[in-house]
C-alpha cells in the first residue's frame, strides 16, 4: 500500500494534495497496489475528492493536539501510523507544509526523501523518481534504497482525474484517535497573516502574469494586477530585478533565488530572461513574452514572443481579454 498525506487549508483539501493522490494512484495501479490517504485533525468537511482522485481508504487521525499544524507533532503521529500500517511509500504534496513536514518524518524513519518530484517512472517493477536540480537546469533520475519510499511531489505538475463525483463509491474511513507520545518542544502556528489581494501563490497559480525590469516602477505592477483580475486562478510574478528594486515583494519572485513554477501559462512583461529566471519558469506549459528588445533571451523559450512596448500593449490586451473571456 502507498500512503498519501492530505493537507488542508481553512478546512478545504489542498489541490496539490489531490494532484499527488491522482498521480500516485495512477502509478500504483500499474503495480497493482492500493493507495490510502491520511488526514490529520477533525476539520475535514468532505472526503469525496479523495475517493475521486483514487484513495481506496482514508486514515483519519484525530486528537486534541492535531487541530493546528505543528511539524514536530504531525511527524510523530505519521511515524506512529506508518509503524502500524507499514506502507511501502509515503507521498506529500511539495507545498510549504509538505516541504516542512516530510524531511522531519524522513529523519525519524532514517530514510531518504525525494524532494519536488516531477515524474514517477515504473521500470521493471521498480520505482524511479525524476526531479529538477540546480533550480531546473538539470534533471535527476534516482532510485531509493530505503523503505518506505518518501517523496514530495511538485504542485501544478500532475493532472487531476476528471471523474464525476456520483460515479465514485466512497472508500473506507478508518478513524484513529492518537494519544500523543510526543512531549518535546514544538513550534506552534498562532496566526496566519494574509498578504492583501494575493489569494494565490505563484507555485499554485494556473496563470502567472509576471513583470521585470521593464515595468519601471512599483505602481506599474497595477497594470498586471488589472490583467490578473480578468484571468481566473492567476497570480502576479516578478523577476529578481523587479524584486530587488523594491517594486514588489520577494514572495512573487520567480527564478533560482525565488520560486520554480510550472503554470499553464506564463505571461512575461519586460523580463529579459536571465539564466536564473529561465531556470525557474521554463517548465511553464505555454510562455508568452512581451519585450522591447528583440534580442532578449526570454524569446528563446517563448511560444509567442511579442517585440514591443508593454505599456502600449497592455491596455488593448486588457480589452481583448475582456471581450474573449466574456464570450
Amino acid at each position: 500500500m502507498w500512503l498519501v498525506f492530505i493537507e488542508k487549508r481553512e478546512g478545504k483539501i489542498k489541490k496539490s494534495s489531490l494532484e499527488t493522490l491522482a498521480e500516485t494512484s495512477r502509478r500504483a495501479e500499474e503495480l497493482d497496489l492500493e493507495v490510502a490517504a491520511v488526514v490529520v485533525g477533525s476539520s475535514f468537511e468532505n472526503l469525496t475528492p479523495l475517493w475521486v482522485q483514487g484513495a481506496k481508504k482514508t486514515y483519519w487521525l484525530k486528537g486534541e493536539d492535531l487541530e493546528v499544524y505543528s511539524p514536530e507533532i504531525y511527524a510523530q503521529v505519521l511515524y506512529e501510523l506508518i509503524q502500524q500500517i507499514k506502507p511501502e511509500a509515503v507521498f506529500f504534496a511539495g507545498t510549504a507544509l509538505g516541504r516542512d513536514l516530510a524531511p522531519r518524518l524522513a529523519a525519524k524513519l532514517r530514510v531518504a526523501l525525494v524532494s519536488d518530484c516531477t515524474r514517477i517512472i515504473i521500470s521493471n517493477g521498480s520505482l524511479l523518481f525524476v526531479r529538477p536540480v540546480y533550480a531546473g537546469k538539470a534533471l535527476l533520475t534516482l532510485k531509493l534504497k530505503t523503505k518506505p519510499f518518501l517523496a514530495t511531489l511538485r504542485p501544478n505538475v500532475f493532472p487531476l482525474k476528471e471523474i464525476k463525483d456520483e460515479n465514485i463509491a466512497p472508500g473506507e474511513i478508518i478513524e484513529k484517535t492518537i494519544g500523543l507520545n510526543y512531549n518535546g518542544p514544538v513550534a506552534k502556528v498562532v496566526e496566519i497573516v494574509r498578504e492583501e489581494g494575493a489569494e494565490l501563490d505563484v507555485t499554485e497559480a494556473e496563470v502567472i502574469i509576471s513583470g521585470g525590469r521593464g515595468m519601471k516602477a512599483a505602481e506599474n505592477f497595477n497594470l498586471l494586477r488589472e490583467l490578473s483580475t480578468l484571468i481566473p486562478r492567476s497570480a502576479i510574478g516578478a523577476s529578481r530585478a523587479a524584486v530587488d528594486s523594491g517594486w514588489i515583494g520577494h514572495q512573487h519572485q520567480v527564478g533560482q533565488t525565488g520560486k520554480t513554477v510550472c503554470p499553464n501559462l506564463y505571461l512575461a512583461f519586460g523580463i529579459s530572461g536571465s539564466i536564473q529566471h529561465l531556470a525557474g519558469m521554463s517548465g511553464s506549459k505555454v510562455i508568452v513574452a512581451v519585450n522591447k528588445d528583440p534580442e532578449a533571451p526570454i524569446f528563446k523559450v517563448a511560444d509567442l514572443g511579442v517585440v514591443g512596448d508593454l505599456f502600449q500593449i497592455i491596455p488593448p490586451l486588457k480589452e481583448e481579454l475582456r471581450k474573449a473571456l466574456a464570450e
Binding site: V111, A112, V114, L128, P132, V133, G136, K137, A138, L139, L140, T141, L142, K143, L144, K145, T146, S282, G283, I287, P294, F299, K300, V301, A302, D303, L304, G305, V306, V307
Partner: peptide, 18 residues
C-alpha cells in the same frame, strides 16, 4: 540511501514565433 540513475539536461524548449 539513493542511487543516482542519471543526471541530464532538461529537454530544450523549441523557440516559438516572434
Amino acid at each position: 540511501k539513493m542511487e543516482i540513475i542519471k543526471l541530464e539536461m532538461p529537454p530544450t524548449k523549441k523557440a516559438g514565433r516572434i
